[in-house]
Design a protein around this nucleic acid. Structure first.
Lengths: 210, 210
DNA sequence: ATTTTTCTAAGGGTATTCCCTAAGTTTTCA
DNA sequence: TGAAAACTTAGGGAATACCCTTAGAAAAAT
């Protein structure tokens, strides 16, 4: 008997997965949760074999929660639930201990396949789908430089710019000269192909760098 | 017997709503759809009384689809399905003919309540929840005006700013003085609660004004 | 251990944004 | 048909962003 828990802040998703699994004799949904906090509390008492975990929870960041759970309860295997939109998260969440991920538009067969695969201790990765999505989001935008690589410092400056800070304020925050901040901003503009700070923010949000 | 259709690109959401409704004797789910196109095709043959419609479909914009459906099939009452995140759409979608909206984390009681209310011909609006969400997104960000109302001209200037144009370029584009452009930008900043143009763009994208 | 990248920073400008105040004109709406 | 809101313009000044070049020091990669 494979014990399953589900965490998703959308109630219908909870009930949807539950109803899809209730006919399977070797699978038992032992608990459902709407928040990360609730999930962690429940696991103090009883743990499932597999947790379906929504990446976008209101209270706790899904990546952080995955890390917490896999550290505290190494026997629980996390399958991330994700929308089309946040595929960029997938790699990060897998790096943080998740055993697989499932798109929310997955049908029953894929759901069961994921459970079977993960309960065998293997990772469940839909490489084809992943590629398809990446290509699709690549096709509809302009010839987007696939993923512009900003350095650590540039990311910090980018973050600060997005906080509406001025060059002066950023320099004080990062303990560097205003001239250095300007240099970083220029490099960011050049890397992202932006004409000014407005463009930096627009593109950064588009490419989910923030 | 109330006939229901559901359109959502997340299969588990479809099955979730279906399973929540299957015990209700006076309600019958007559069809489920994963795309807007599929929905429209199916409605050529048979129409439900109520359609639960996901705002974020991959193929057709939910607002456009609502408009299309309510014009082509005036007897169908649309209830928009929405996440926390896109509450800003709600007013727009209601303006385009939807009879109500439901958050995806709604429980069974609310689902049934929505169906009852809408089938009586009344609008189903969860004012309390709406306010709660607005307040919540207000708490974590700066004191953002609920839904900032920009004038036509301000919208044009906003659009131009987002195109990375300078004040000079905007003034040429709109055939107005640069000083006027600045005045508009100042008003936009003030209305959105932004500190600079970066903030304008960030907030405008957040509130989907662009 | 050496090349490459990143981080740092300066000088010296120009361009643009930001901010204030003020006020005439037009549009919208009650 | 008034009153209110929106649109328009402007002057002037301070602050900030943008742009170029150059270049040493630190860190990372090979």
């Amino acid at each position: 008997m494979i014990k399953i828990s589900i965490t998703d802040d959308h109630y219908v998703v909870l009930k949807g997965i539950e109803s899809l699994l209730k006919d399977e004799k070797h699978i038992s949904v032992i608990s459902i949760h709407e928040t990360g906090k609730d999930t962690l509390q429940a696991f103090e008492i009883a743990q499932p074999d597999i947790l379906f975990l929504d990446i976008n929870l209101p209270d706790i960041n899904g990546i952080v929660l995955t890390k917490t759970i896999t550290k505290s309860f190494p026997n629980i295997r996390v399958i991330a639930l994700t929308n089309h939109e946040d595929v960029s998260f997938v790699k990060r969440i897998l790096d943080n201990g998740a055993f697989g991920y499932l798109l929310k538009n997955a049908h029953k067969e894929e759901l069961l396949q994921a459970i079977e695969t993960v309960s065998k201790g293997e990772r469940y990765l839909q490489k084809d789908i992943e590629k398809k999505i990446l290509n699709q989001s690549l096709g509809r935008k302009e010839y987007s430089a696939l993923q512009p690589k900003l350095t650590r410092r540039e990311m910090e400056v980018l973050q600060a710019i997005s906080e509406e800070l001025t060059t002066q304020e950023i320099s004080e925050k990062l303990f560097i000269s205003p001239k250095t901040v300007e240099a970083h901003r220029m490099n960011i503009m050049s890397k992202l192909g932006a004409k000014n700070s407005v463009g930096i923010i627009k593109i950064a949000l588009e490419k989910q760098l923030l």
